[in-house]
Simulated assay, not measured.
Amino acid sequence: MAQKKAHEVDGWLRRPDPETRIILIYGPDRGLVAERTQTYVKQAGLDAEDPFSSVRLEASELDAAPGRLIDEAGTVPMFSSQRLIWIKGAGTHKNLADDVKELATNPLRDSIVLIEAGDLKKSAPLRNVVEGAFSAMALPCYADESRSIDGVIDEILARERMTMAVEARQALKANLGGDRLATRSELEKLALYCHGQPQITLDDVTVTIGDVSGLSVDAAVDAVLAGNSEAFDTTFSRIVSSGSHPFVVLSAAMRQFNQLLALRGDMDANGKSATAAVASARPPVFFTRRKLIETAVQRSTSVTLLRALERLQAAVLLTRQRPDLAVATARQALIALLVEAARARR
């Protein structure tokens, strides 16, 4: 059958079979799906940015126009030997599965169909079609295991020319996994915090990822989302006066805004309401915070959330460059986000 087990996927992606013309990358780990899709494009030597040799389409629009995928696959590339048809957001789309089935029975010559999908059951039509086809390949993406996490850690350490103490790695791995996008986000924060250091220590991991201030940190971030300046000032002051580095609040805020960005993306891509997106979030949102998160994601856009994350990242870097201004820097960045949240609620 045209499929790989989860532990075989990375090996296949390092040397993809040139005879494979339809590739389905699916699974509950959305971040890993996106990462492996990019890996395939690179390893296959395809140019996803060239409008003459590639096209990106949403599964919903193809499902609403039966036969369009077949027409796209039959288009001869103008200035390259292969044409990439990159489909995003695939799921239980019957017409799309039917078109893929027809393409699978008549092997493509000049086109490659690359499909990104969420978690597909074994009985899903699209998965059945790809797994049963000779010129196709289904690649599952599940939550990171210990070995996978080590690989991502080593990749970022090599890029930053850093090493990591053994106890720091153990503590780090205990707080990672479940979603590749979230894992990379945490590691990028750690690399940013430790920029310029030769080695990452346990203290670095504890400050950036460890739950140092517990519920008080969550309360500070919730106050930012709610636009509640009084609650934020009280909670933030308590955290700093207890001896905790202000980075712990910035770190918690970055995690929260990354989650909001993922939820907003789910709403935009799948037409979900804020309530439905939050209800299906993984890991789940604690029930006492659901209304707050629903309101925050409803009143945000992907653009505003990305801008918020850029502001937080800039603040993190400045706290490293000017430790004497760390408290003021963190407070200013968080208050700016709080003010924007308060304005959005008016």
Rank of each mutant, 00 (worst) to 15 (best):
L202E: 09
M162P: 03
D204K: 00
T183D: 10
A191D: 07
A174Y: 05
I200G: 04
G196N: 04
Q199A: 15
T163E: 11
G178V: 01
E186N: 06
R184S: 10
N175V: 09
E160F: 04
K189V: 06
A191M: 14
T201D: 06
T201V: 08
T206W: 10
G177N: 01
R180C: 09
G177P: 01
L181V: 03
D204R: 02
V205H: 06
R161A: 12
T163H: 08
V212I: 13
M162Q: 14
H195Q: 15
Q197R: 14
P198L: 08
D179S: 07
S213W: 10
S213D: 14
L190R: 01
P198R: 07
I200E: 02
K173C: 09
A174W: 09
R184Q: 15
S213P: 03
D211E: 12
Q197L: 15
P198S: 08
A165V: 10
V212F: 07
T163A: 12
Y193Q: 08
M164P: 05
R180D: 06
A171W: 15
A171G: 15
K189E: 03
E160A: 12
G210P: 03
A168V: 00
L187T: 04
T206C: 05
L192G: 11
M164S: 04
E160D: 14
D203Y: 11
V205T: 04
G210T: 02
E167Q: 12
H195D: 14
E188I: 09
S185D: 13
C194V: 07
L202M: 07
S185L: 12
L172C: 08
A174E: 10
C194T: 13
T163K: 11
D204V: 00
V207D: 06
G177C: 03
T183M: 05
Q199Y: 00
A174P: 00
T206S: 13
L176C: 10
V212W: 10
V205G: 06
T201Q: 06
D204Q: 01
K173Y: 02
I200N: 05
L181D: 13
D204T: 01
H195G: 12
L172Y: 02
L202G: 02
Q199K: 14
K173G: 04
L192R: 09
Q197E: 15
M162C: 10
L172W: 02
L172G: 03
G177S: 03
Q170M: 10
G177W: 04
A191N: 03
R180V: 07
L176I: 05
P198Q: 04
L190A: 05
T163Y: 03
A182M: 14
K189Q: 10
P198K: 09
L190Y: 07
A158Y: 03
A174F: 07
K173D: 04
I209T: 08
A182I: 09
G196W: 03
G177F: 05
R161V: 09
E188Y: 06
R159K: 14
L202V: 11
E167T: 14
T183A: 09
D204W: 05
A158T: 12
I200A: 08
M162F: 06
A182H: 07
A182T: 10
S185N: 15
A174N: 06
A165D: 14
E167C: 03
R184A: 10
A171V: 11
R159N: 08
S185P: 05
P198D: 10
V166W: 13
Q170K: 12
A165F: 05
R184H: 12
Q170A: 13
A171L: 14
T201G: 04
K173L: 08
L187Y: 04
